[in-house]
Design a protein around this nucleic acid. Sequence first.
DNA 1: CGCACCGTTGATTAAACTCAACCTATGTGG
DNA 2: CCACATAGGTTGAGTTTAATCAACGGTGCG
Lengths: 234, 234
Amino acid sequence: MAKFFEEPICKECNLEFRTIFKKLTPDQVDFLTSNKTCSMVKRGTVLYQEGNRISGIYCVSKGILKIYKTGTEGKEQIIKFAKKGYVVGYRSTLISEPACTSVKVLEDATLCYISSQELYHLLKANSEFGIELLQIACKELGEANDYLTDIAQKSVKERLAEILIHLKDEFGVNSEEIINITLTREELANIIGTATESVIRLLSEFKSDGIIELQGRKIKLVDLNKLKKISNTF
Amino acid sequence: MAKFFEEPICKECNLEFRTIFKKLTPDQVDFLTSNKTCSMVKRGTVLYQEGNRISGIYCVSKGILKIYKTGTEGKEQIIKFAKKGYVVGYRSTLISEPACTSVKVLEDATLCYISSQELYHLLKANSEFGIELLQIACKELGEANDYLTDIAQKSVKERLAEILIHLKDEFGVNSEEIINITLTREELANIIGTATESVIRLLSEFKSDGIIELQGRKIKLVDLNKLKKISNTF
DNA sequence: CGCACCGTTGATTAAACTCAACCTATGTGG
DNA sequence: CCACATAGGTTGAGTTTAATCAACGGTGCG
C-alpha cells in the first residue's frame, strides 16, 4: 500500500531538531533512513501499553505523545509528554523488559520506528551515539527526581502552578499567550497527582486572582511572576 | 601518606558484584584499577551536595550511601540508597551539570573514584560499556517512574508498607528477620514523603497488628503477606 | 550536668479527596 | 430531526487523611 504522506528524512530531522542521532556519521544516518518505518498516527491511538513487549523505539517527527502509567485503582499517572525530536520506548527496548508505561497520541503524529536490531547496530558501531543516548537518559532521570521531590513535598496548588509554567516552557505559547497544548482537567490532575475537582477549583482560583484566563481547555498565562511565586521554584 | 586499608581491586569487585564494568576487557579493567582513587569514608560524611560540581563517579565497594535532594523548606527527600556494586554521580558527570542530589554515608564505606576523563576514555573505547551504563540508567529511570506513581497515588500507609518490603528486598534480613539497614524514623519519612510523626504512628499500628516488631531502629518483618496486602503491590 | 537528637503521644487544624448533583457540548441511532 | 447517551466541566457539602503544634521521655556525649 502506498503511503500518502511525506516520510521524514532522518538527515533533515537531525538538522532541524538536533535529535539523539546527531552524532551519527552520514552513512549511519542513511542506514537509519533506509531501515526505519514511518507512520502517521491519529489522536487517540494507543501506541503501546504497560506490559506490552516492544522491540524498538519511536522517534517523534510531528505531534505530541502522552506517556503514562496506570496506578492502583486504574488511575492514570502522566509521566511526561514527547514532542518532535523526542524518542520513546528506549527504556524498555534497551533493557528488554515489557513496557512500564503506556503511550497515547495526544496530537496527530508522524512517527518513525527503529527496531531493536538497528538500534543495537548503531550503538555498537558508534560509541558517541551511546553516550548521547546515555545523556538523554540521565537528563530524564534528573527530571524524574525533581518531579518526585515536588510531588512528595509540595502542595497541589504549588504543583499546579509549576506544571503550567513547565507546559509553557516545553510547548510555548501562541500569539495570545495561550499554552500550545490542550489537556483536559483530568489530564492536568493526572500530571500532578490529584483529583480533577481540585484542579478545577484551583484553576478558577488562579483565574479570579488574575493569574490566568480560561477559554475551555485553552489556558492563557497572564501573570507569570505570580505563578512562579506560587510554585515556589527558584 | 600510606593507606591503612586494602584497596579494592576492580577485577575482584567485578567478579563479586557483577558491576557496571563487567563488559570491560581485562586491559581496560587494569586501566581502571591503576587510575582510580580509593578511600574509606566514615558514617556521616557528605560526599557531595546538590549544586556542587563533581567530575567523576564513585563506585561503592563497601557500605551504604544515602542519595537525597533538598526540597523547599529544606526538607530532605531520599531518592535512593547505594550499596556495594552500585555507582553514584554518573548522572551529573555525564551531562556536565552540577549535582542534583546530595550524597551522605550511612554506613562506613569504601569507595573508588573514577574521574570524568577516565570514564569517557572507557566509554569511547568500549561501546558495550556504554550500553551497560545505559541499561543502568534506564533501570533507574523505570524505578523513578514507579516511585513517582506510588507517591502520587498511594496513601502514606501503603507507601510505608511498600518501602519496608523494598528495603528487605534490597538489603536483606539477618537471621532474626531484621532488615539489614538502620534508618531513623525521620529518614523513613523522608523516603516516602511524609511527616516523622506519621511514620511513628503507622509503625506502631503495624506492630500492634502483629505485622512487624520494633527494637529501636531495628525492624523485624513478622508477617510479610499482610504487609504486601497493605502495600497494594501485585 | 546540660545539651542535642531522637522517639512518642495527644490534640487540633488544614488540605485535599470523595460523593453527589447538575450543566454543557457533542455525537449517535432511531 | 429529535431523543438520548457520553464525556467533560463545575460546584457544594461532608469526610478523611495527614500535617502541624506542643509536650515530654530517653539516650548519649562533651
